[in-house]
Design a protein around this nucleic acid. Structure first.
Lengths: 332, 332
DNA sequence: CTGAAAGCGCTAACAG
DNA sequence: CTGTTAGCGCTTTCAG
């Protein structure tokens, strides 16, 4: 057997462990990956020795040799900030689901933003994109890498693309049904319909309103924040603008902002105006009045995203998926 | 110059680009890392050719060769869930700060949980641990890897450890000062003092109360959630238990739960009882009454964590740091 | 059941 | 300014 020179100071390698025991380094490799072709007793001996010597696998070397990284890149389309956290709490919940599923599959997760991804592409076997953005440009950046990828959002891109998201149209329908049931007839939609998910929510909302006797009296473009929700309704409260008795906001944050503005102008919620939000974010039940909302299941969404990107990496066929949503009736 | 055989199908390597142009692959390497030792014209030619051929750097190979990973592992001590998101919104904000700073330094970030970290240690040059937990066991796991690491939390571990966190004692003092100023004399502390950060908050609170005429009439252990906050005060509202006119809750979530319980029992906030929370979480300003709280600056904290772990990796000396906090007075 | 050789793709070190 | 050589640590392939 070929001997190699010992080394000092640095972290021990397989060669070091092999030399210590007088075996070949390939035997160490096999033992540590628990291959049954190595005698049981040898295997445990090697494992113990490696442990004792403080051996740790060099992941870069393995990845180079195996031509894969066991890593999935998760790209966040937006930057987390104090303002947006409340408006879009989903990142953390989605991340939780993704992490859980990747973990189970023995994969690592590198987290980046879209800018960083361009600047310094991490090494990964596949990509999960969270939020496709207003224009589809984020997805285009990922597409260009040639890596397999899946997107959280709405199905508005090219046909082949794999998208996981909530059934936003159904969410819109549920909101409409609820407001109609409460007797609302003159409705407001708050949200940015340039945004794929909001567009679907609006479409479902409109569809369910057809022939109902109710109508959308104003459709106000507005970002996914509390402040934007406030600003969206203020212009309608001075006497000018159409009258309304119901609001469908495309996020809970928008709904909260709108309600604050309404109350500040003496309008009662839900007495004068009924409001339905979207997301069922953690703060919805704590707001006053407690917010009626459309719930999305982000945890499951994250798991699904991870599963699908792994299938894609493995070369399997994969389909898009719209996840069920639910109406959570509270006091607004 | 040595020629190498061409290859089909696979992603092109530096050797492929080199052959295409009739140069050595080391020249390609140098050109792509923009070294001035390569003639300007050659550099641009190589860059363009690489681009055209769809060349992408093999990060594993570079990492193996350079014996580093350009990656920092961020270990979350807890699992994100719908319940805990609201109670501890800091992960995302901390992550934002960390990400920003790592990005600027050209580093990647792998996200794991403490369990996953044990199961399958990712390759990284350093570790950031978010949340040291009740017992210091999470830190012990990281310590065992021998990797340089920093912790978000309170300074309660061994002396050498680098900890970044808010000045929790000062936060406690601010809360005490505010409640005293409002005339409160019989105070409640809600939080888990087994938890290092909560312990410091309590210590600062007690210290500022000394010789003030006011006293802590009950110190109720309680997890960092809305539900726990509710359950913590309910037993005191039936007539048994001490009377109280002020509460310092060690998180906003706890404060919200406590206030809900108080209101449900007919006690007015802030009329009968004044409440101070901790975190100034995004929902604090939306709660009713708007929550008075101690603000922590997570974004800056994240940046600091990243900076310090990078310094550690670079072999520099690094010190722990307690970040300033601020009292945000609202209506509770 | 164990071993030797080869090479993944890249860059440091040393020529020229 | 450019090239040659060597080798990072591991696992695949082929031999025993």
């Amino acid at each position: 057997m070929k001997r190699e020179k010992p080394r000092e100071g640095a972290r021990p390698t397989m060669a070091d462990v092999a030399r210590e025991l007088g075996v070949a380094k390939i035997t160490v490799s096999r033992a540590l990956s628990d291959q049954s072709t190595v005698k049981e007793s040898t295997r445990t001996l090697i494992r113990e020795t490696a442990e004792r010597m403080g051996y740790r696998l060099n992941v870069s070397a393995r990845n180079l040799r195996q031509q894969r990284t066991r890593t999935i890149a998760v790209v966040i389309e937006m930057t987390p900030s104090h303002e947006r956290l409340m408006s879009e709490p989903y990142p953390l919940l989605l991340l939780g689901g993704i992490l859980q599923e990747l973990t189970a599959a023995g994969q690592n997760m590198v987290l980046t933003t879209i800018d960083l991804f361009l600047q310094a592409p991490p090494s990964a076997d596949g990509v999960i994109l969270l939020g496709q953005g207003v224009h589809d440009d984020a997805a285009a950046v990922i597409e260009a890498t040639g890596l397999p990828y899946v997107v959280w959002g709405a199905e508005h891109g090219p046909p082949g693309r794999v998208v996981v998201g909530s059934d936003n149209r159904e969410g819109g329908r549920l909101a409409a049904g609820h407001l109609l049931g409460r007797g609302c007839r003159r409705l407001l939609f708050l949200g940015d319909a340039e945004h794929g998910e909001a567009e679907d929510r609006l479409n479902g909302f409109e569809a369910a309103l057809a022939d109902s006797g109710a109508a959308i009296v104003a459709n106000i473009p507005c970002a996914f924040t509390v402040a934007a929700g406030r600003e969206a309704v203020v212009p309608l409260l001075g006497g000018q603008g159409p009258d309304f008795d119901g609001i469908f906001a495309s996020s809970d944050a928008i709904a909260m902002g709108a309600i604050e503005a309404l109350q500040a102008h003496g309008r009662k919620v839900p007495g004068d105006v009924s409001v339905v939000g979207f997301d069922d974010s953690p703060g919805a039940a704590l707001f006053s009045p407690r917010l009626t909302s459309i719930r999305q299941d982000w945890g499951v969404g994250g798991e699904l995203l991870a599963q699908k990107v792994l299938d894609l990496v493995a070369g399997k066929a994969v389909e898009s998926r719209a996840m069920p949503v639910g109406l959570i009736v509270r006091d607004s």
